[in-house]
Design a protein around this nucleic acid. Sequence first.
DNA 1: CATGAATGAGGGTTCATTCAT
DNA 2: TATGAATGAACCCTCATTCAT
Lengths: 234, 234, 234, 234
Amino acid sequence: MPRPSDPNAKEKLLRAAEAEFAEKGLVRAKVEDITARAGLSKGSFYLHFQSKEDAFRNLVEGVLSRLGCFVDGEEMSAQELERLCGAPAALIEDWQSRDLETFEFIWQNRGLMGVVMEGGGGADYRHLVDTFADRAASRIAERLQRGVSFGVYRADLDIHTASLFIAGAYDRYARRVVRSAERPDLAAELRALRSMVLRAIGTPAVVALVESAAEAPAKPPRKRRKPKNTEEAA
Amino acid sequence: MPRPSDPNAKEKLLRAAEAEFAEKGLVRAKVEDITARAGLSKGSFYLHFQSKEDAFRNLVEGVLSRLGCFVDGEEMSAQELERLCGAPAALIEDWQSRDLETFEFIWQNRGLMGVVMEGGGGADYRHLVDTFADRAASRIAERLQRGVSFGVYRADLDIHTASLFIAGAYDRYARRVVRSAERPDLAAELRALRSMVLRAIGTPAVVALVESAAEAPAKPPRKRRKPKNTEEAA
Amino acid sequence: MPRPSDPNAKEKLLRAAEAEFAEKGLVRAKVEDITARAGLSKGSFYLHFQSKEDAFRNLVEGVLSRLGCFVDGEEMSAQELERLCGAPAALIEDWQSRDLETFEFIWQNRGLMGVVMEGGGGADYRHLVDTFADRAASRIAERLQRGVSFGVYRADLDIHTASLFIAGAYDRYARRVVRSAERPDLAAELRALRSMVLRAIGTPAVVALVESAAEAPAKPPRKRRKPKNTEEAA
Amino acid sequence: MPRPSDPNAKEKLLRAAEAEFAEKGLVRAKVEDITARAGLSKGSFYLHFQSKEDAFRNLVEGVLSRLGCFVDGEEMSAQELERLCGAPAALIEDWQSRDLETFEFIWQNRGLMGVVMEGGGGADYRHLVDTFADRAASRIAERLQRGVSFGVYRADLDIHTASLFIAGAYDRYARRVVRSAERPDLAAELRALRSMVLRAIGTPAVVALVESAAEAPAKPPRKRRKPKNTEEAA
DNA sequence: CATGAATGAGGGTTCATTCAT
DNA sequence: TATGAATGAACCCTCATTCAT
């Protein structure tokens, strides 16, 4: 006996699938459990997805693509860029602001991010994450390069090693956030993380700035786009 | 037609299981593939293990426990400790030497380490890795504390954040090693990684030391125990 | 969004169902494919048929019933009959004319005829075909009997075997027609077939007639009823 | 709980599959019913066959290949051939003997033959049957040609039409045999069928022979190979 | 009447595990 | 101990059918 048509069926299924995948990974998650969680019947799953893998791919590609937007960031005008780099404090605040947005998104989507980062999709999806990680490291390298040429970072910086290192630090932090039961104090922790990084790569002037600014309050992040999948709201 | 008793059967099965788990993860690895790879019959698997999960747990616990030995390190006499901490250069060399041993082990056991780190065992085994990571961070914290009290690291060091940060850096590097197709230059890469870390946490004197010693040759690691699972030898 | 009522819906569905059944048989044909081909919605199928099998039965019974009319033929007045049987050549022409009509119908409805003859409906529908075949053989037997009593066929004819044999020959030819990609030259092929049959059952006089008449042109068939399902027109 | 190893498992499964396919066709036959009929568990099916279709193909190809041996017949030495064709009566007896063997085989394997001939495997298997039918018609054409050149059949025989016609007659008879509930009197019916055919294609001398020999007893068939799948024995 | 999302029984296939030999 | 055929629970996916709109 069919239920009344539900215009949100696909969305409900995606939410349910996300939760099941987050809990059990691609292989152990059962289609029947997904549909049960969505309050639908088993068959309805296949009205919206080709297969279980299809739904998984949908979710993973979606979250990685949206995360990619944060990583790539907005275009910054040459003028704005020069202004910021001339004022290390402002540059650092911009950095913090971007980090906060990114990790806010990661926190909101921690279920899916967890599956993706912990390999819950099996080897077939690792390359997606690897590709993403490479892109992130490249972005960081670009910014380091820029920072060096503007005299914010040490001139003798080994940019390749440093970018891997920094990407690693963020990766590690992301894993921690994703597994947190409680919402972490993202602003404070990101500030601490960044202080560590700046100490390692900054010029003495920047290091001094970092040390003096340890207690400065963080500005709220600019709203660039509104995050989806707000698990918090559910 | 029973084959003659094989005293190495369990060992062969463990090696085969490790390889299959490394390639496919716990769920996708088939008992039949494991026994085929070991050159034994399907039934023989259950003469040595309660279940597929049992074999997996055996392997994971084994590798984590051996890795734990490296992390915990040998007891160091108070005298030796004081000597080392009075000579930062020696302390750093000791650190390098321990890192090298640890990562040598990780490289040798990269198959299993990969499954463990990439979540190939599903959510049920994450706590093992988490527990291990916590222990590692504690150890690092202890050593940071000691280093601070001996004046090697900056007195204002936020030990908690620093330990997470450092554990993260090593974790990240371990993931890279585990996925390398080619044997990485562990000594050089660990030296670079440590330099980064020391710049972030060391006193100015130590930072100077790091900068001047960039080209110093690493001593060969002390042999504390011989690593098992030498995939290289196979 | 309901479409405006379509008075041809049932007919469209029957045509689509026929095509799908012809291509895939009862089991492999999907209701959804049928309705899609008809340009209607899935649900509309059940406004016109109880079930997929119901539609299949409708079609099969329809085609067999219309084919039965050809086989049974029109009532022939005693007078007309006597006239024909007194003139073997005319009798043979009448036979050819009826065959042509029948096989024209078979060709036009080759899709459905194919499913029916090739068992595409499964064992449940075989009895329909069997019943039909029995009836056809009986009709042939009657005509053979009549032909014998009028001295057209050999007096020693084993009517039972002959009728099966002839029914078989037509059955076989029907299968060939039904599978032809190109429209076969029905008139010529039926003439050849009939010649073979007449040689086997005819009196020497008739055999001579057959041999001398090999090149006589066939008259166009009388139009008794107009065939439906004219696939050619579509 | 596994049953004791059964060396006949595959054979039992083939028999059971044959029966189920014969009753329900490829699509409607359920693997579970097949294994139940064989007294085995569902999973055991896949120890012996890749899939349900694989088992079906095995059976169909097997029966067609064995039937092909009958149709192709044994090589006949030129000497023997000449002797036989010089003595139409002997030639006809040889024909009868071969027919009897072939239809004995068809009767023994009527289950499978039924599925194959009635299209129970769907369109995918029709080409196998078509290919087989073409081969059979070619063989018949060859023999007709030989018979004509030896003066057994009418010199003006249209070999192509005749071969199709004869193949059709045998095809039709095979369908009847396959559906018989009771074992038909193969010898008598084949003899009748052959008489009809000979009347249609034979020279007057042969026709006379046929008419006089209607009551001659059939020789028992030479045993060329022992038929498998003897449903009668089961 | 028409629609098409929803339903859920059904069936093919996999594979961890057992146990007679 | 070793073997590998046998088992059967699980689970993915299909599709005929229903019914709220």
